[in-house]
Design a protein around this nucleic acid. Structure first.
Length: 212
DNA sequence: AAGAAGATCGGCT
DNA sequence: GCCGATCTTCTTA
């Protein structure tokens, strides 16, 4: 266990996800990130916040019109074109941020691709998350990080993390999965909030539990 | 040059 | 369920 100013931190002792785990297509990696823990150690307030990934979406490749990389590289999406293992953070609707992790073979990658982290189940720093989200102690844990904009707000993820490599990062990283899930626990559906390529079932969600 | 759309969220009806 | 907030990119609505 590692010490923080608020006591022992459980998540700091969990091994990180290896780059090899990201060296596949986004579609293959997206379900594999379910059960991993996204950990944030904020440079602003030093607080550790973390949540188990419960919902992901794959984006990218040559035929995904919903992908930010579909029409090529721009200033905004350039991090999406980085090799596997980098965070791509963008501003959504002018207000929120969304966080992706890039995937793909480091040598063969021809198109931008990555996994959007859409939801977490909080496991550490819950009071900090509530404060950042402007909620009081009565706010249900299961709704704290139940959307991509909420995830970044609760974990203090913003443009400053855009392009950050997760290897050796001290402010933001992903752990190895802490549980093994049976295949039936994962629900596969079309992606949310898009108008193009809606026919692709590229969204992966852990089945609802007793807590949500 | 101007307008629409977008990987969202929260408040209001 | 609908709408507004607010910023970047793409299209010409």
């Amino acid at each position: 266990m590692s010490e923080t100013k608020h006591g022992k931190s459980w998540v700091l002792s969990i091994p990180r996800l290896t780059l090899a785990a990201l060296e596949h297509s986004a579609l293959e990696v997206a379900p594999n990130l379910l059960g991993c823990i996204l950990v944030s150690c904020s440079a602003t307030d030093g607080q550790i916040t973390a949540g188990m990934i419960t919902e992901t979406e794959a984006y990218g490749g040559p035929n995904d019109e919903a992908s930010h990389g579909y029409r090529g590289k721009t200033v905004r999406n350039s991090s999406f074109f980085l090799p596997r293992g980098h965070f791509y953070v963008y501003r959504s609707y002018g207000i929120h941020h969304c966080v992706n992790i890039t995937t793909g073979d480091v040598l063969l990658k021809k198109h931008a691709e990555g996994v959007l982290i859409r939801a977490l189940f909080p496991v550490e720093g819950i009071d900090t998350m509530r404060r950042r989200r402007g909620k009081d102690h009565t706010f249900p844990i299961s709704k704290l990080t139940a959307g991509p904009g909420m995830v970044t707000q609760a974990l203090c993820i913003s443009i400053e993390h855009d392009g950050l490599p997760l290897k050796n990062a001290t402010s933001l990283w992903i752990t190895q999965p802490i549980r093994v899930f049976i295949k039936d626990a994962i629900t596969i559906t079309p992606r949310i909030g898009i108008t193009k390529s809606q026919e692709l079932n590229w969204r992966f969600r852990l089945q609802a539990t007793s807590t949500n």
